[in-house]
Design a protein around this nucleic acid. Structure first.
Lengths: 334, 334
DNA sequence: GCAGGCGATGACAGCGCTGTCAATTGGCAC
DNA sequence: GTGCCAATTGACAGCGCTGTCATCGCCTGC
């Protein structure tokens, strides 16, 4: 039989309730008492029984990470960060893939909640921006944190300054002397799409370059969308000398299409992406891009959620730094 | 307050224990009684409280998926499959990334087990092949299932016939008239590495082609290893007309290196990979490869594990079908 | 030195379910 | 119709912990 809280109490010469207080880091335990209990717990290698704790405390010590189809690299990073945070506070994490477009999306989250009773949810884009879901969560009074939500007000989570990052990567191209810079946008339903377009326009505007709608092509974050957009752009009589694709997959598609058109990257055309996914290092030339600290974003968002759950503060919306990764796909304008 | 088992019992006019029996699908409940209970449960939208169940039954209804660094695509697929299986039987799943090389690897699994008390583990390569871990799991009497383990005997899980798949993809090259076929191996610590090499040798042997050690280069499953191996192979005076890389990332590296050497794929050299990861469709030319049903492998392995946990059978080691995906990176020998 | 007040600790019940074992029922042979 | 056995059902305790509230002890101020 395992070591139980009662055993620790006996060994420490206190009541079970006092051990419980120490375990849960509650106030009103005298220093020496706490020490005694901690020593006994360590000596006996005590581990609280999660189910017993949950049952008695009416909390699950469980956080659910909910996602729909982000790239698996991104997801794995976020997931790892959330796990980091959960481990720090002895919470568990479960994962739940869902289809945000499906009719029963909100209902499925209801089911998730009533089955597993997570103490809080961690949402990833685009689930962060589903109004009915957020309304339902408020209704059920289930706390949640969001990674890169479209609307940050009133919620807790983590984000980077996307427009600024986009300005910076476009600024890098401007600094190399490029003036005809095209942009391939992301999927219209993602917040990132708008932010990156905004950053692109702001950077051009700050450099005194007029906005040319012919240089902006709608994509959807996929490799093939990058190919299609690039075919269109490279067929223009006055073709761009640089392309800012709203993510790395599309940038890879642009680079492929460049080869198809007999254009060499970066000699004839510079290409930049966004996200710093592994593909940015797996293609040739390697891709200049923006690195998001995805794992850290998952971790921080989860930590803020846990802080709120544990009643240590309200939970904040935290801004994290990004970093421009200059690689081989960009060069001075020829 | 939520609906409890007691409420259902009252509504159905039976004792709580009988409801429990129906809930747990136990024998010795008469048909009509079962119906009555099921009807009451449905009418009241009853959900058992997981913690209460775990506490009383001394089982967690939890499976832990343990992994070290597989590619995130592979991991996500496996994870989704395991979740599919867990959902089918109202189990939960947790995930746990670990470093198999670290000194405290087994200890960390011990900690995982004593903290979260999963009823079983789901192992992915290369964790499937860690003798001390497996020994420890037997010692602790914790059931586990393995996906693609090196040693299948006596364990439960899912696998594909890797040597046969390798024979098939090499056979595809042979069918295109290739005779000088090189092989870039995987990381020596992975079972797949040996199987794929074996399949390669068997295919050549069956075609009456002598084995040439100069055409086999050791890699490690990474893009850059593919590049390095290909540089070596393409510098041979009698260079190969086709390359079988032990996974897609290395195949992508081979294709890149071909460009570097002024070789066109597939005109001058055919390249095949293994795994059918997204990169096989994101590069140009798209990659001929072997598709593993990873999600299904996760699902089936988990189902077998659950069957064993629930006492419905012993749990089997199940073979699943693979499929050769012919794409653009292979062509008849020039 | 003593009342008053607050911080620290403990007693106790019970969270929602299942294991054990006892009680009851139904079915069948005769 | 009766007796017997197995199948079915129920009573009860308790899984390991925490919430609530009562109690205890110590320090403060006069």
């Amino acid at each position: 039989m395992r070591v139980r809280l009662e055993d620790v109490a006996r060994a420490a010469g206190v009541s079970p309730k006092t051990v419980s207080r120490v375990l849960n880091d509650e106030a009103n335990v005298r220093g020496p008492t706490r020490e005694k209990v901690l020593a006994a717990m360590a000596a006996m290698d005590y581990r609280p029984h999660p189910s017993a704790r949950s049952l008695a405390a009416n909390r699950s010590f469980l956080v659910a990470t909910v996602y729909d189809n982000p790239s698996s690299n991104y997801l794995t990073e976020i997931q790892t960060g959330v796990l980091d945070a959960c481990d720090e506070h002895h919470y568990s994490m479960m994962v739940r893939p869902l289809h945000v477009e499906s009719a029963d999306f909100v209902e499925r989250i209801d089911t998730l909640i009533s089955h597993h009773r997570p103490d809080g949810l961690l949402l990833t884009p685009p689930i962060t921006d589903h109004p009915q879901l957020l309304a339902r969560l408020h209704e059920l009074d289930v706390p949640y944190a969001s990674v890169s939500p479209m609307n940050r007000s009133g919620s807790i989570g983590a984000f980077i300054d996307e427009p600024k990052a986009a300005r910076e990567v476009v600024g890098h191209l401007l600094g190399l002397g490029h003036r005809r810079i095209a942009h391939v946008t992301g999927h219209p339903s993602h917040g990132a799409t708008g932010w990156r377009l905004t950053g692109y326009r702001e950077a051009l505007s700050a450099a005194g370059i007029p906005f040319d709608p012919a240089l902006v092509v709608e994509g959807d974050f996929s490799f093939s969308a990058g190919v299609a957009a690039a075919r269109q752009l490279f067929s223009l009589s006055d073709r761009p000398t640089a392309v800012f694709a709203a993510n790395d997959d599309m940038a890879a598609g642009v680079i492929w299409a460049a080869g198809e058109h007999g254009l060499s990257v970066p000699r004839d055309v510079s290409v930049v992406g966004f996200d710093d996914t592994p593909i940015s290092r797996q293609i040739w030339p390697t891709l200049t891009t923006i690195r998001q600290p995805s794992r850290e974003m998952g971790r921080i968002a989860a930590l803020e959620l846990l802080a709120a759950l544990r009643g240590k503060g309200e939970g904040r919306m935290v801004q994290l730094p990004y970093a421009l990764q200059v690689r081989e796909s960009t060069a001075p304008v020829g």
